[in-house]
Design a protein around this nucleic acid. Structure first.
Length: 111
DNA sequence: TTTCTGACTCGAA
DNA sequence: CTTCGAGCCAGAA
């Protein structure tokens, strides 16, 4: 498939799937990696339609480590359970040790 | 076709 | 310290 034919969402999914186990990242980080630093909203929106994709949306949180999208998961705390099952500590919808668990694609991944 | 909304982020007051 | 506004793009009504 040509890169031009790949939609913005496809790129988001591609990066999201590269998130290592037990790590988390932010919408803005993905957007920045895609060259659209100010399209963080679009990344979140992409996650909304990623229900049919193999995208670990639960590993994507906002810049504060807050589980802003947990409400969009099936359960009330499904997102938190998924994160905790990966060894990530979540408290009050917020990821603990977020700074240590934070995975920046533009920094961890090659250009 | 236009209008509105949204899993965000950052800078300014 | 907190609060507010603007920017970004895509999809649904």
């Amino acid at each position: 498939m040509k890169p031009e034919t790949i939609s913005f969402f496809e790129r988001v999914y591609k990066v999201a799937r590269q998130i290592p186990y037990g790590r988390v990242t932010s919408y803005g980080a993905i957007a920045k990696y895609l060259g659209a630093a100010r399209s963080a909203r679009m990344v979140g929106y992409a996650m909304n339609v990623s229900h049919s994709k193999d995208v670990p949306a639960h590993r994507v949180v906002n810049r504060s480590g807050l589980l802003t999208g947990k409400h969009h998961f099936q359960g009330t705390n499904l997102m938190q359970q998924l994160l905790e099952s990966e060894g990530i500590v979540v408290e009050d919808n917020q990821v603990k040790n977020f700074t240590e668990l934070y995975w920046d694609p533009s920094r961890e991944l090659p250009e």
